[in-house]
């Protein structure tokens, strides 16, 4: 079904992750189509972050098959091709916005000869997240939402082919959330990047091309928002999600 869109950006088969002796992801099968925004939705604690860490290659105890951009997840060659934003902003508080970006840019694209190219990509990333007026402020002095955007800007450096964004819009006001979603759509359309974005706010689901609904370490549904609503006969994705949860619970009950 997915093959019509071309090779998947992320393809998982029997993906299982253990944390301690707890199984966080239970044999997931899914694929993420390239050049689109795929939303990863589900209640907190359902395994969204773990799934994203597995895709990026920072999660230990991963079993099953997980291919990212045609290579096994965590492959060294993928590190420059994926932009990753953790849930908590991961930037240096005692550096300015620009200094933060300059350092990460130098890690991605090192060398004196690349200096001009780096300056350009840094300026573009700052403009992308609308922080030009704060470029020379210390990251530690910024508000929570602004620090989130610095963290996002780091992930946008170097034109990544896959962006993995773990709840990038948490704690942002509605205007900023709308602006960021517009940015995600622009990046997917203009830079042909694949975006895997998690959220537990269901209204953001409507803005994704495809959805992976997760609950309790399993994938409840893998479809477009329209198809989901149609299939469950619901008005919103939130209602569709609740319908699917009830259905899964009922199945569990009857199995007992």
């Amino acid at each position: 079904m997915m093959n019509s869109i071309g090779a998947a950006a992320v393809r998982a088969h029997g993906l299982t992750v253990l944390r301690g002796d707890r199984t966080v992801l239970r044999g997931l099968d899914f694929s993420v189509p390239p050049g689109q925004i795929t939303g990863l939705l589900g209640p907190s604690g359902c395994g969204k972050s773990t799934l994203m860490r597995a895709v990026v290659g920072t999660q230990a105890k991963v079993t099953g098959t997980l291919d990212v951009l045609g290579r096994p997840a965590g492959d060294a060659a993928l590190r420059a091709r994926i932009g990753y934003v953790t849930q908590a902003p991961s930037v240096y508080d005692d550096l300015t916005v620009r200094q933060n970006l300059e350092y990460f840019a130098a890690v991605l694209d090192p060398g004196r000869a690349r200096r001009d190219a780096r300056a350009e990509t840094v300026t573009r990333a700052i403009t992308d997240v609308d922080l030009a007026s704060h470029a020379d402020a210390l990251a530690g002095r910024l508000s929570g939402g602004q620090r989130n955007r610095v963290s996002l800007a780091v992930a946008l450096l170097g034109t990544p082919e896959l962006l993995v964004l773990d709840e990038p819009t948490v704690g942002l006001d509605p205007v900023l959330r709308r602006d960021l979603w517009d940015l995600f759509h622009r990046i997917a359309a203009e830079r042909a990047a694949t975006i895997l974005v998690s959220s537990h706010v269901m209204d953001e689901a409507e803005r994704c091309h495809r959805l992976l609904l997760m609950r309790d370490g399993r994938i409840l549904a893998d479809d477009t928002p329209d198809a989901l609503r149609a299939r469950t006969g619901s008005e919103t994705v939130e209602a569709a999600f609740l319908h699917l949860v009830d259905q899964a619970n009922a199945l569990q009950e009857s199995a007992r």
């Binding site: 099953g64 492959d75 060294a76 060659a77």
Partner: peptide, 17 residues
Amino acid sequence: MTTRTPATPSATAPAAP
């Protein structure tokens, strides 16, 4: 290394830094 089976990153990636 705690990772097993195909999700293990290959040690001999051609473009490894």
